[in-house]
Design a protein around this nucleic acid. Structure first.
Lengths: 139, 139
DNA sequence: AAAAACCCTGTAGCCACTACTGGGTCAATA
DNA sequence: TATTGACCCAGTAGTGGCTACAGGGTTTTT
């Protein structure tokens, strides 16, 4: 299977596949006599695994560790739990800050309901005022 | 005011301030005879505004546009509304995908409650199985 | 006078790609 | 058979928003 077919199978861009190989996430496949990469089913699986982890927003460093665990099934899986826990914690933190963000933006948006000039726009004056409050420490 | 003081006033890293100048977000201040940057109060305000927008997770390109609006208060503010609306839309989308993400990770985490070997770890087998489902199109 | 703290420019690195340059190879058509 | 188009290759540079150097110069404090 050439790189284009692998890309089609997995829905992954060819450049991304080569990128994964370059950073050592996807093992380099054997080559055809013309130099083309020649993949097998195992590569499809490995790549699909990587993409699934990425869909869960895991950093590639974590994905790499998980892939290492797969090839060493005898070690303790406590590390995997810790990795997932840490990632979940991370996601939750970002989630909370995003929720705050949404609220702030809603408030901000409500400052300007009608379209007039920038001079009278509540959004900009709100932004400027807010940055005065938080900006200088001599407040 | 030198760059260090500006950094202290606003809580912004010196390197970040120079970075903002380089990309044209913060205007280059006059220099002292020794070449040191010499800031004034207006720079404190402008920088605080930038940081406030960044705290709202706005891309610097948007911040730049808002700064331009501030210096042109006579134009119509409809663009500002659209900018904020688009940003809010963006934030909400990310929020939803993060919520999905959290759920998926919770399910994943629940696969392995006790610590044993990787071979029997529900998390990894779940990840592998899930990538099989989504990976190949011949499913 | 010497040491610490500050300032300068410029470059490289982070993440996870994406895009581009400038080629080589291969299958199908005119 | 010539050529078009689709595919493949390696390597480099760019994205965003910083952060971290390297290798200097200046100012302030001790």
């Amino acid at each position: 299977m050439r790189i284009g077919e692998l890309g089609n199978e997995t829905g992954v861009d060819i450049e991304t596949i080569r990128h994964y190989e370059k950073i050592g996430l996807l093992s380099a496949p054997p080559r055809e006599p013309n130099g083309y990469r020649n993949y097998e089913t195992s590569h499809v699986e490995r790549l699909a695994f990587i993409r699934h982890c990425r869909a869960l927003d895991m950093p590639l460093a974590d994905v790499k560790r998980l892939l290492d665990y797969i090839t060493h099934p005898e070690v303790d899986c406590g590390d995997i739990n810790r990795l997932i826990d840490a990632h979940l914690h991370n996601v939750r933190e970002r989630l909370h800050s995003m929720q705050n963000l949404e609220k702030q933006l809603e408030v901000l948006r409500s400052r300007c309901e009608d379209s007039h000039t920038v001079r009278d726009c509540g959004i900009l004056s709100e932004l400027v005022a807010a940055s005065h409050k938080t900006g200088a420490k001599s407040d």
